[in-house]
Design a protein around this nucleic acid. Structure first.
Lengths: 232, 232
DNA sequence: TAAGAGAGTCTTACGCCGTAAGACTGAGGG
DNA sequence: CCCTCAGTCTTACGGCGTAAGACTCTCTTA
C-alpha cells in the first residue's frame, strides 16, 4: 500500500534497442566485456534486467549488436577517407583504411576478443569488407585474388591480431639468474629476448598486439599481394 | 544410518590433475568447450565438483591446463619431424612444422578459440615457439627478424587463423533474387561470391578457416620473410 | 592394536548468471 | 469510461563457480 510513487524528477526515458546497445558498449569500455551482464546493463539504464528482453532477444543478440556498433564506428571513420586507389595506389589506400580501423579498436580494447567469438556476421563488418575489396578491385585484383587476400589478412583486415605469445614479455624485469636457467630449455627465445627488449606497453590491443609488429606483418602481406595483382 | 557402502565393484581410481585435464579435453572434444563445467568434469570422473579443487586451483587453471595439453600434443608430433633447416631449407621446415601443428588442431576444433582467450602463456606453447625460432635461426634469421616473424605469423605459427567473415558463406544456397538485392549494397562482395563459390565444408578450423586459404596466407608471409633473411 | 595425522573427497550453501512466465501500468482510442 | 496493448517489472528456476568445513580413508608410530 505504501508504494509511494517514485520521485518523478526523472521523466523516465523509454528503453530501445539502441539505448541498450549503447549502454552495453559503455560498460564494456569502462569495466571490460567480462562484466557485461543483463542486470548490469539494466542498472546502467535505471531499469530491470527483464525489461531489456522486450528490445533484444537475448544476451547473444546484445553481443552481436555491440560488435555491429563498433564496426559501424569503424565505417564512419573509414568512409571519410578519400584516397586514390587506382592501380598501384591500392596498397596505400588499403593500408590507411586498415590502420584507421585499428585506431577505432584501440579505443575499445575488449572488441577484438568479442569479434572473434561472433558466429553470425555483422552487417557493418560485411559493409567494411565490401569496401575494402572495392579498393583491391581498383588496384587490379581479380575476384579470386581478392578472395585470397581477405583470407590472408584475416582479422588484420579490420585492424587487429591476437597473438598467442608475447616473445618480449618480462624481458625487462626477468632476473639474469632466471634467464640463465631458462636459457637451457629455451635457448632461442632467451637469446632473442636478451637482444630485442621491446617495452612498448602502450599502443597495445588485446594483450600483445604491438603497433610496430602489426604494421610489419601487414606490409609483408600487402607486398606479397601486390606482386600477384594485375597492374592496371 | 542406512548409508550402505557403495558397491565396491569399482575400486575408485584416485583423482589427479592429469585425470582432470584429460577428462576436460574429452568433454571439449565431444561436446564443445561451452559445455565444460566443473560439475560436468567431475561427473565424467565419477566424483563431485568440489573434489576437483584439490587438484586444480580453479576453472581458469583447467582451461590453461587443457591448452597446455593440446600444445603438448602438438609438440609430440612436431618433435618427431626431422627435416634440414639450414639456409634456404628453413622455409620448408617451418612450413611443415606449422602444417603439422594445424593437423593436431583439426582434431580439436574448439582449441583455437580457447588458445586466444588465454592470458597466461602455456609452457608447451613457449617450447613450441622456441623450436620454431630455432629453425629460423638455422635459416639465417637475426633475432630481430625472428622476433618480427613470430609476430607476423601470429596464431598462424601454431596452425590456425580465426577469420571474422567468410566471403564464401551461403554462396551456394543464396537465391539469385537475394543476391541481386544485395548486389546494390555490396557489389564487390556479391561479384566475388558469384565467381568464387568455394564450398569446402571439410578441413575447417573454427568457423571459416580453410586449408587452402591458410596455406595461401602462410606462404605469403614465409616468402616475405625469406626475402629479408640473411642467406647462410 | 589403538590413536593420531594428513591427504583426499564430499556436503552444503551462497551469490552470481540468463531468462521463462506472467502480472502490472499508463497512455491512447472507441 | 473502459479497453487495448506496448512496455516494464516481479518472481522464480535451474545452472554456474567456489567458500567453508565435515567426513573418510590410509598410513605412521607407540
Amino acid at each position: 500500500m505504501a508504494t509511494q510513487r517514485e520521485s518523478r524528477t526523472e521523466p523516465r526515458i523509454p528503453l530501445s534497442r539502441e539505448r541498450v546497445l549503447r549502454a552495453a558498449v559503455k560498460i564494456a569500455d569502462e569495466h571490460g566485456v567480462g562484466s557485461l551482464t543483463m542486470r548490469r546493463i539494466a542498472e546502467e539504464l535505471g531499469a530491470e534486467a527483464m525489461s531489456l528482453y522486450y528490445h533484444v532477444g537475448n544476451k547473444e543478440e546484445v553481443l552481436d549488436g555491440i560488435v555491429d556498433v563498433i564496426a559501424g564506428e569503424i565505417n564512419d571513420v573509414v568512409d571519410r577517407i578519400d584516397l586514390p586507389s587506382k592501380g598501384a595506389d591500392w596498397k596505400k589506400a588499403v593500408r590507411h583504411r586498415i590502420l584507421s580501423a585499428r585506431e577505432v579498436l584501440l579505443r575499445h580494447p575488449w572488441a577484438p576478443g568479442l569479434f572473434e567469438t561472433r558466429v553470425t556476421t555483422s552487417p557493418e563488418v560485411v559493409r567494411y569488407f565490401n569496401a575494402l575489396l572495392g579498393l583491391m578491385r581498383d588496384g587490379g585484383f581479380s575476384y579470386d585474388l581478392g578472395h585470397h587476400a581477405l583470407h590472408a589478412l584475416g582479422s588484420r583486415a579490420i585492424g587487429f591480431t591476437q597473438e598467442l605469445f608475447d616473445p618480449g614479455e618480462g624481458a625487462g624485469d626477468a632476473s639474469p639468474d632466471l634467464l640463465e636457467s631458462m636459457a637451457e630449455q629455451l635457448p632461442h627465445l632467451v637469446g632473442m629476448m636478451l637482444e630485442v627488449a621491446h617495452d612498448d606497453p602502450d599502443s597495445t590491443l588485446g594483450w600483445c598486439d604491438d603497433q610496430t609488429e602489426f604494421e610489419f606483418g601487414l606490409d609483408i602481406i600487402l607486398d606479397g599481394l601486390d606482386r600477384m595483382r594485375d597492374p592496371a
